[in-house]
Protein backbone atom coordinates (compact mmCIF):
# COMPACT_ATOMS: atom_id res chain seq x y z
CA UNK A 1 0.00 0.00 0.00
CA UNK A 2 1.63 3.16 -1.25
CA UNK A 3 -0.08 5.70 0.95
CA UNK A 4 1.95 4.74 4.01
CA UNK A 5 5.25 5.27 2.21
CA UNK A 6 5.50 8.59 3.97
CA UNK A 7 6.31 6.47 7.02
CA UNK A 8 9.55 4.50 6.82
CA UNK A 9 11.11 2.38 9.53
CA UNK A 10 14.23 3.96 10.98
CA UNK A 11 16.91 1.87 12.70
CA UNK A 12 19.03 3.27 15.50
CA UNK A 13 22.07 3.27 13.20
CA UNK A 14 20.28 5.45 10.63
CA UNK A 15 19.16 8.14 13.12
CA UNK A 16 20.26 11.64 12.15
CA UNK A 17 17.95 13.65 14.47
CA UNK A 18 16.66 12.77 17.91
CA UNK A 19 13.33 14.60 18.43
CA UNK A 20 12.71 15.52 22.06
CA UNK A 21 9.09 14.39 22.49
CA UNK A 22 8.25 15.12 26.12
CA UNK A 23 9.27 14.49 29.71
CA UNK A 24 8.78 10.93 30.92
CA UNK A 25 6.00 11.80 33.31
CA UNK A 26 3.84 13.19 30.50
CA UNK A 27 3.38 9.62 29.29
CA UNK A 28 0.54 7.49 30.62
CA UNK A 29 1.76 4.17 32.04
CA UNK A 30 1.26 1.32 29.58
CA UNK A 31 -0.01 3.81 27.02
CA UNK A 32 1.07 6.16 24.29
CA UNK A 33 1.13 9.76 23.11
CA UNK A 34 1.30 11.26 19.64
CA UNK A 35 4.27 13.36 18.55
CA UNK A 36 4.36 15.71 15.55
CA UNK A 37 7.52 15.97 13.42
CA UNK A 38 7.62 17.71 10.05
CA UNK A 39 3.99 16.81 9.28
CA UNK A 40 4.53 13.19 10.32
CA UNK A 41 2.62 11.76 13.28
CA UNK A 42 4.40 9.21 15.44
CA UNK A 43 2.89 7.17 18.28
CA UNK A 44 5.28 6.81 21.21
CA UNK A 45 4.51 4.10 23.76
CA UNK A 46 5.58 3.77 27.36
CA UNK A 47 5.20 0.05 28.03
CA UNK A 48 5.74 0.38 31.77
CA UNK A 49 4.88 -3.22 32.49
CA UNK A 50 7.73 -4.44 30.29
CA UNK A 51 9.93 -1.48 31.00
CA UNK A 52 10.18 -0.85 27.26
CA UNK A 53 9.64 2.11 24.95
CA UNK A 54 8.39 1.88 21.39
CA UNK A 55 7.47 4.24 18.56
CA UNK A 56 5.42 3.52 15.42
CA UNK A 57 3.61 5.57 12.81
CA UNK A 58 0.38 6.97 14.27
CA UNK A 59 -1.50 6.06 11.09
CA UNK A 60 -3.43 2.79 11.15
CA UNK A 61 -3.04 1.11 7.75
CA UNK A 62 -6.49 -0.48 7.95
CA UNK A 63 -8.67 2.61 7.42
CA UNK A 64 -5.98 5.28 7.39
CA UNK A 65 -6.81 6.63 10.82
CA UNK A 66 -4.42 8.83 12.82
CA UNK A 67 -5.10 6.96 16.00
CA UNK A 68 -2.57 4.34 17.10
CA UNK A 69 -1.19 6.49 19.94
CA UNK A 70 -4.60 6.00 21.59
CA UNK A 71 -4.34 2.23 21.05
CA UNK A 72 -4.22 -0.36 23.77
CA UNK A 73 -0.95 -2.10 24.63
CA UNK A 74 -0.68 -5.81 25.22
CA UNK A 75 1.18 -8.97 24.37
CA UNK A 76 0.53 -12.00 22.17
CA UNK A 77 2.75 -14.75 23.44
CA UNK A 78 6.07 -12.93 23.86
CA UNK A 79 5.34 -10.28 21.24
CA UNK A 80 4.48 -6.78 22.51
CA UNK A 81 1.61 -5.29 20.49
CA UNK A 82 -0.73 -2.34 20.10
CA UNK A 83 -4.45 -2.67 19.22
CA UNK A 84 -6.08 0.01 17.08
CA UNK A 85 -9.08 1.57 18.80
CA UNK A 86 -11.18 1.50 15.64
CA UNK A 87 -11.40 -2.15 14.60
CA UNK A 88 -8.95 -3.82 16.96
CA UNK A 89 -6.30 -4.64 14.38
CA UNK A 90 -3.15 -5.50 16.33
CA UNK A 91 0.44 -4.73 15.36
CA UNK A 92 3.78 -5.89 16.72
CA UNK A 93 5.59 -3.04 18.47
CA UNK A 94 8.93 -4.68 17.60
CA UNK A 95 8.61 -4.91 13.79
CA UNK A 96 5.20 -3.33 13.09
CA UNK A 97 3.74 -6.52 11.56
CA UNK A 98 -0.07 -6.81 11.51
CA UNK A 99 -0.66 -9.76 13.87
CA UNK A 100 -4.37 -10.49 13.26
CA UNK A 101 -4.73 -9.46 9.61
CA UNK A 102 -2.73 -8.82 6.46
CA UNK A 103 -2.46 -5.04 6.46
CA UNK A 104 0.93 -3.60 5.69
CA UNK A 105 3.35 -3.30 8.57
CA UNK A 106 3.77 -0.15 10.64
CA UNK A 107 6.94 1.85 10.33
CA UNK A 108 8.80 1.76 13.66
CA UNK A 109 11.24 4.27 15.14
CA UNK A 110 13.93 4.04 17.81
CA UNK A 111 13.22 5.59 21.22
CA UNK A 112 15.72 6.65 23.87
CA UNK A 113 15.22 8.10 27.33
CA UNK A 114 17.87 10.43 28.75
CA UNK A 115 17.64 12.11 32.14
CA UNK A 116 13.87 12.23 32.19
CA UNK A 117 13.41 13.18 28.54
CA UNK A 118 12.04 10.89 25.82
CA UNK A 119 13.48 11.09 22.29
CA UNK A 120 12.40 9.51 18.97
CA UNK A 121 14.92 9.02 16.18
CA UNK A 122 14.38 10.19 12.57
CA UNK A 123 16.60 10.31 9.49
CA UNK A 124 16.28 13.15 7.01
Amino acid sequence: MTETLAYKTVTTEEVSTWLEVAVEKDFPSNGGVCAEYKGLQVAVFNFTRRNEWYATQNLCPHKQQMILSRGMLGSEGEEPKVACPFHKQTFSLKNGENLNGDHCALATYPVKVENGYVYVGFKN
Binding site: F47, R49, R50, M72, L73, G74, S75, E76, G77, P80, K81, A83, K88, T90
Partner: peptide, 19 residues
Protein backbone atom coordinates in the same frame (compact mmCIF):
# COMPACT_ATOMS: atom_id res chain seq x y z
CA UNK B 1 -5.49 -4.23 36.63
CA UNK B 2 -1.76 -4.68 37.14
CA UNK B 3 -2.27 -6.19 40.61
CA UNK B 4 -4.81 -8.62 39.17
CA UNK B 5 -2.50 -9.59 36.31
CA UNK B 6 0.43 -10.11 38.70
CA UNK B 7 -1.62 -12.17 41.12
CA UNK B 8 -3.80 -14.23 38.79
CA UNK B 9 -2.70 -13.73 35.19
CA UNK B 10 0.25 -14.02 32.83
CA UNK B 11 1.85 -11.93 30.08
CA UNK B 12 1.09 -8.25 29.60
CA UNK B 13 -2.66 -8.34 28.94
CA UNK B 14 -4.47 -7.38 25.74
CA UNK B 15 -7.40 -5.54 24.21
CA UNK B 16 -9.73 -8.31 25.36
CA UNK B 17 -8.94 -8.68 29.07
CA UNK B 18 -8.14 -5.05 29.81
CA UNK B 19 -11.60 -3.60 29.04
Amino acid sequence: YDDLLDAHGSGDGCEVCKP
